[in-house]
Write a protein that binds this DNA or RNA. Structure first.
Lengths: 190, 190, 190, 190
DNA sequence: TATGAATGAGGGTTCATTCAT
DNA sequence: TATGAATGAACCCTCATTCAT
């Protein structure tokens, strides 16, 4: 029930965005009454927040598993692969994620309390870069900057691909980003 | 007057986003009455659209001037410098721009008719990459993909910088992106 | 509920006219909230239109029943009697009807789609006159013209009576109109 | 100037009705500024009222002249002829007149203070009927009722004619009304 | 527990009226 | 005197939220 609501919410929020998504539409889509939604979620905002939180955790877990125990270089490749695959699979959520990236979730995210999550996320995975630098594989660059570079690039290209603006395969997105970024990142002096 | 309204709108829209921005608030901020806003703009949507359109044109013009007549390599550097400078100067608009990047402006932008603008923008400046490839300076990669990589990376890093999440100077943002991307882009085979 | 709203609307529209009638007033009068009105009617215009449509159908049905199977002469008497009785009973609606007669309902009634109804109404009941002429009871006059003469006369007198400008009984209104019109209509040559 | 405004107002009010007529439109039509309108008329209502008052006086004067010194029978004919001619000439005003007949002007006319005018008008010209009865030409019927009958019939038929619902000439309208009403009114006993 | 009808605050928009120029 | 830009009160309508059944 709670699950059905969450899925319906994900669908509707992704299609319409937070403000144009109507609770009645979500209820209809989920096959429950609006009253039932309010039994599980205190407000529209909480429901929205829950959709993001849940998917974000899923994504985080997948990325962690993919990256775990790997060398920085392999981990970076795994990161890119996993994220592209995740977003290919979770188009609805990707839509929401992109919207949030550039709005409330980072800005006044007190509302959703997601900003802390995101800071942690960036800090955690920029650790890959950090380790790469420490072991001498990567150049000495700001690790968080590099991570943001990669994730920004990835999201932007993939978003246009999913919108149908760029005829390119997911695999090519991965290849492109990795090729460009890794050449720039690897310390060839050695 | 029209200018005052536009500036107030830019401020309020950037702080609140389209939906949370109230016309009364914009009027107050501009020091005019609600009615006056409607003398110049047919609707809240048109006002919003106008804010974006105007700044976008400014940005486009600045970038064009910076890039004009330069070699692909220099043009790319100029592009990065100009965009970072523009967004540093135009923080309010940058906020709006980021929101739009991940929402309507690309999706259902028929509303604002900006999607055409953006396609043109990508096509136009990915021309830099194209020329670089043609003359053998850059590797053979999808030009639009590369352009989206750069602009996505740039926006993402800079956004976090402006949010105060990343203590890094604008100059370092430019350096970082250029260093990583150019190393990855330059065809060292030759 | 729907009924309660319709009755309140009839009352307020009759007192104030379409433009001066406020939705909040109708809601208050009906003892419901504004939102509830919009559950049943898409807009103020639709509500207004519904008030008219419903009463018009009632009136039409009553008149049809009264007239059915009667000779032209008797039918005409029945018509006059029924209309006067209907308007005596439905004062609120009569107010609205009179307003509409001289405005939108005939003019740009596309809005309410009542102009078609009225044309049909005139055509239908001018059939009484037509039959009367055909069978030689009535003089050879334009049937629709005669019908409009009767209904215009009736409405005008009755309206003033209901306004209290004319101290006359409903029965006298019927008598007056029938006496004058029938003398003028009957073909005494035969 | 005042005249130009009045004519523009008449035109716009007749086309749109009181509420849909906009002051700016009237100003534009008159070739003056809105400020100028307010120099001559205190409010939109006063302007509307003035339009009606002026035309009504014109109509009254024409009718009075036409009727003056005539026998009841001739006066009645003159009345019908004059009114139909007046409305044929003054279509814009006729539109307004019809609207008012069934609305504010009679109801809460305190606003326009026209209700007194109308009562006087009815009383004055029902005098024709009264005299006709006194001298034995007309049957003993309620004079005001008869007058309202005639004017209601006349307005209704003529309105439909002007709307294009009834293909009939003005002359035939006069003939029809006179034929029917006079046959009904004349005391043939004598 | 589930329903969905009812609520009503809130906001975009209009337009008669004013008043500085 | 004439202008028309500026004003802001007023109103229709939406939709998240509640609560009686």
């Amino acid at each position: 029930m709670k699950e059905r609501i969450l899925e319906a919410a994900e669908k509707v929020f992704s299609e319409k965005g937070f403000y144009e998504a109507k609770i009645t539409k979500i209820a209809e889509e989920a096959g429950v009454s609006v009253g039932t939604i309010y039994r599980f979620y205190r407000s529209k905002e909480e429901l929205y927040s829950e959709v993001i939180r849940k998917k974000l955790k899923e994504m985080e877990r997948e990325v962690e598993e993919a990256v775990e125990g790997k060398s920085p270089l392999e981990a970076l490749e795994a990161y890119v692969n996993t994220v592209v695959d995740f977003f290919s699979r979770e188009r609805d959520f990707f839509e929401i994620f992109m919207r949030e990236l550039g709005s409330s979730f980072i800005i006044d995210t007190e509302r959703f309390n997601l900003s802390d999550w995101y800071k942690d996320y960036v800090r955690k995975f920029s650790g890959i870069i950090e380790r790469g630098i420490a072991e001498g594989t990567f150049k000495e660059l700001d690790p968080e900057g590099v991570f943001l570079l990669i994730s920004g690039a990835l999201a932007n290209i993939d978003y246009f691909r999913l919108k149908g603006f760029l005829s390119i395969e997911p695999e090519e997105v991965k290849k492109l980003v990795l090729e460009v970024v890794l050449s720039g990142l690897l310390d060839n002096e050695r």
